[in-house]
């Protein structure tokens, strides 16, 4: 049973002067290009044995690409600025004021893309463009088997990321598991081929994972349904709170950038009120990429953030 879950298509950081500071574009799972690979639903029971390293590699290579061009994403971020301003003005007019900087859903672009926003107290804005069908999640495989672009899931966190993700999902699933009833219809999206049993494995570790996963599944089968339930329920509609950990982590990364003595904020957000240079820090870019890849709805918390 493979599930399509939301993923991050693009992360943007906008400065106080409405100037772009950073843009990270992430690949989305694309069913049309991956449709050549289908597997028999009967084989779901032994997923670990049906996978060969070659099919996973090809699915990883063909099944993911950015949904839009960088320019289109950039324009999308620009268009969110109006919404930020509109919300701020609405809050000022009502006199209540926003309680937190989390603005939630800014706009839904089409049936796949939606923009979520967060504004820090210092006026820096983070925008996450979510692709509602950007990732193929196969619960029959260990929790590392998430299709999200061609980048191996080892990016998420080094070492014991697999165990951590599963445990976190189990915890979240107990809270949201009751809402997981209506998700069965969603799993079988008509436009999607039955893509069960296909997971992404890093090319180097694919063989070892396949051999170990058969022994891994029975031990974790108890908590796997809850993970699926929590994630699948999230895919029916994303709640604003599910992006909060991401925004918090982005802000942590931003604060860390400011703690770099070679980073001069005034260069990037000119005091005069207009313009500023983009962020060139490689570490910040890597952080953004890692956060974008690692975000799964309902699974909160990022290691090291």
């Amino acid at each position: 049973m493979a599930t399509i879950v939301p993923s991050i298509a693009c992360l943007g950081v906008i400065g106080r002067n409405n100037n772009p500071l950073h843009l990270t574009i992430l690949p989305s799972y694309n069913p049309s290009s991956a449709s050549a690979i289908t597997s028999d639903p009967e084989k779901q029971q032994q997923p670990a044995t049906t996978i060969s390293a070659s099919t996973t590699a090809s699915s990883a290579a063909t099944g993911a690409s950015p949904l839009r061009t960088p320019l289109q994403f950039s324009l999308l971020l620009s268009s969110t600025l109006d919404i930020f301003e509109l919300r701020a003005r609405a809050h000022a007019a009502s006199g209540t004021g926003a309680l937190s900087g989390d603005l939630g859903l800014l706009c839904a672009v089409d049936e796949r893309l939606a923009c979520y926003g967060y504004e820090t107290n210092t006026g820096v804005r983070f925008v996450a463009v979510v692709d509602m069908r950007g990732r193929l999640l196969d619960p029959t495989l260990p929790s590392t088997t998430l299709i999200h672009g061609a980048i191996p899931e080892t990016d998420r966190s080094s070492g014991g990321g697999a165990g951590n993700t599963g445990a976190a999902g189990g915890g979240a699933g107990t809270g949201t598991g009751t809402t997981g009833d209506d998700t069965s219809g969603l799993v079988n999206l008509p436009s999607l081929p039955p893509l069960s049993g296909i997971g992404i494995l890093s090319p180097t570790s694919s063989s070892t994972t396949v051999t170990t996963s058969s022994s891994f599944i029975p031990g974790t089968s108890s908590r796997k349904p809850s993970l699926v339930a929590s994630i699948a329920s999230a895919s029916t509609g994303l709640r604003d709170a599910e992006l909060k950990p991401l925004f918090k982590a982005m802000q942590t990364s931003w604060v860390r950038l400011l703690q770099n003595p070679f980073f001069d904020l005034d260069e990037h957000v000119l005091p005069g009120g207009r313009g500023g240079r983009k962020i060139t820090s490689k570490k910040f870019g890597e952080d953004m990429r890692r956060l974008g890849m690692g975000w799964i709805p309902g699974v909160g918390g990022f290691e090291g953030f």
Binding site: G97, S100, L258
Partner: peptide, 11 residues
């Protein structure tokens, strides 16, 4: 930047 992180919004 660091300490305004977990504060409610300034209006």
């Amino acid at each position: 930047e660091r300490f305004s992180r977990d504060r409610p919004r300034f209006n």
